[in-house]
Design a protein around this nucleic acid. Structure first.
Length: 562
DNA sequence: GCCGTTTTCGGCCCGACTGTTTTCAGTCG
């Protein structure tokens, strides 16, 4: 039983934190972090790699190669086990608090005997923390606040939530003087905090922020951090001539930045957010745009969505970056509900909305009858609906495709008979029940849907709902392989609370030649506008226009589905 | 723990800000 590069990397990162808590050499710790990055950034599976090639991976030496060997053999890492035995889990959990890192955990644990969040709360309330050298009353207050925040923490924001926070902050800034950077700009599906680059004077902006913020975390001339609508917002100030390096720095990702700085170092430069310094002469060259920075490094400009050190740096150096799909490439929406099931639009309204969006086609894909809560369609109702669709299509420039979102039932069968499905233009099959099945059962359930010749698309393939429901247990690699074999598309559900498949799943599927289908899952007209969220996931999954089903024109799409 | 046409020893990406300080450690991004 092997494991993925991501799993090995996560294990190494976890080990690095535990080593720090135990107070070990920080550079030994860095070795694990660097190895984690090196492994995660590789396309090729690290498991099963011959040892000579493993040792050739930068950052992996004999000791780490042995750790990889253990993990890939399906065993626990012996080092991790040893660390976990020597540090209680509740001590490790202290890392979840803001402002608490591994070194603080080490000291709290060893010098105060704090081994749980509750211990820490009591110690801070009794002013025992401030008896430690380097800790004071302010730190105690911060710790108590961090504990309170941790208890009511809701985790990461959806993009819609982030946009709401952003709208509030933007009102305090001046149009044209700022850019939102960070994970928001990289198009991530969830956002931890907002990062903004501003060219306005801090003396102008700071007072406005202070007045409106829930809490001021840091107040500075170069950076100010506030909590706004309960979320952390960081604003970096810079002059226009340094905008390029600052925006690049703040957009990240961290791993991408580190790679770029390493490339700079090997070329005799030092890169930071203020510019590019020649190490021998110390002369600083500034860049007003990111393009200038990329050009200095001999790289093609890397779209923000790709900046994760997942191979895009090499591709940019070799000039082989993919030309990513854009909203303009889309010809239609492939997952929409009407009033026939649980949506609010009539077929006529659906056609009109499609026309307004400039689409060639829009699917009507209502639920099948098996899903009681959604007023699903029976075989007879599907037929009736098809007639209405035909009538509407006579006077619409946007073709309404007759489709269905048929349930994949617990035993792997579908919610409607084959003879109903065969008459439809497109069939989406989705799991809407029995989320807690064992991985193998769930996987085989989805595979049987993929194997059905009438099924064209698997809807929201992992069933996750951001912040509310974890993905169900499913072996995505087997799903992707089967989808490739049976020429079944996998969906990116563009609803901002789903965004399922996620970016890594999309990249895998794309690499295996599986078609990706984009659908908003709109239940009302406004939700048809969610498509850009799905496009962002496609871009993060390295999709070119040709990788998506709905960049095809109508006849090509119908030909594919036939 | 890893790595090297500057190095097999002595480095490891870089900077802002805070708190507790008297020059810096820790955290964060």
């Amino acid at each position: 039983m092997g494991c993925t590069n991501r799993q090995v990397a996560d294990t190494f990162r976890f080990i690095s934190q535990l080593l720090l808590i135990r107070g070990e050499d920080p550079f030994r710790v860095r070795a694990f972090q660097r190895a984690a990055m090196a492994i995660e950034g590789r396309e090729e599976p690290i498991c099963g790699m011959p040892s000579d090639r493993l040792l050739a991976v930068p950052g992996i030496g004999p000791h780490l190669a042995a750790q990889v060997g253990e993990l890939c053999a399906g065993r626990e890492s012996s080092l991790l086990l040893e660390l976990q035995q020597s540090i209680p889990a509740s001590v490790i959990a202290l890392l979840e608090l803001d402002q608490v890192g591994p070194k603080t955990v080490h000291r709290l644990w060893h010098e105060l005997g704090v081994s749980t969040i509750e211990d820490l709360e009591q110690a801070a309330q009794a002013h025992r923390v401030s008896t430690l050298k380097g800790f004071g009353a302010k730190k105690e207050e911060e710790l108590l606040k961090a504990i309170a925040r941790h208890r009511r923490s809701t985790g990461r924001m959806t993009r819609v939530q982030a946009e709401a926070v952003l709208a509030g902050v933007a009102a305090l800034l001046t149009d044209g003087t700022y850019t939102v950077a960070g994970s928001f700009r990289r198009g991530r599906s969830t956002i931890g905090d907002l990062d903004i680059v501003s060219t306005e004077a801090p003396a102008v902006v700071n007072p406005r922020l202070v007045v409106r913020a829930d809490e001021v975390i840091d107040l500075g001339e170069k950076r100010t951090s506030i909590r706004f609508m309960g979320q952390r917002v960081d604003i970096r100030f810079c002059s226009p001539d340094q905008y390029g390096t600052m925006l690049m720095y703040l957009t990240g990702s961290k791993d991408f930045n580190i790679r770029l700085r390493e490339i700079a170092l090997s070329a005799g430069w030092r890169l930071n957010e203020y510019g590019i310094e020649e190490r021998t002469t110390g002369s600083l060259r500034t860049a007003a745009t990111e393009e200038e920075v990329f050009s200095m490094f001999g790289m093609d400009p890397v779209p923000p969505e790709l900046r994760e050190d997942h191979g895009e740096v090499e591709a940019a150096l070799e000039h082989t970056l993919p030309a990513l799909v854009t909203p303009a490439d889309l010809r239609g929406d492939l997952h929409v509900h009407s009033r026939w099931s649980d949506g609010s639009m009539t077929i006529q309204e659906l056609a009109g909305a499609g026309e307004a969006l400039g689409y060639q086609y829009i699917i009507c894909s209502d639920h099948s009858a098996s899903l009681g809560v959604a007023h699903g369609l029976s075989a007879a109702e599907v037929q009736k609906q098809q007639h209405e669709i035909e009538v509407v299509n006579r006077s619409s420039s946007c073709r309404v495709l007759a489709g269905i979102e048929v349930d994949i039932l617990s035993n792997g069968s579908l919610g409607l008979p084959d003879k109903t499905l065969q008459d439809l233009d497109l069939v989406i099959a989705s799991v809407h029940s029995g989320f807690h099945q064992e991985e193998d059962v769930m996987t085989r359930r989805i595979l049987s849907a993929i194997e059905n010749e009438h099924v064209d698309i698997i809807g929201h393939p992992t069933g996750r709902v951001l912040g509310r429901r974890d993905p169900y247990a499913v072996d995505l690699d087997r799903v992707i392989e089967a989808a490739a074999v049976h020429r079944t598309a996998l969906e990116i559900n563009a609803s901002p609370s789903r965004l399922d498949l996620d970016d890594t799943g999309v990249r895998k599927a794309r690499d295996r030649g599986v078609a990706i289908s984009l659908g908003t899952d709109a239940h009302m007209q406004a939700e048809l506008g969610n498509m850009p969220y799905g496009i962002q996931v496609a871009r993060r999954g390295w999709c070119r226009p040709a990788d998506l089903l709905n960049t095809r024109d109508l006849s090509s799409l119908l030909e594919w589905a036939a």
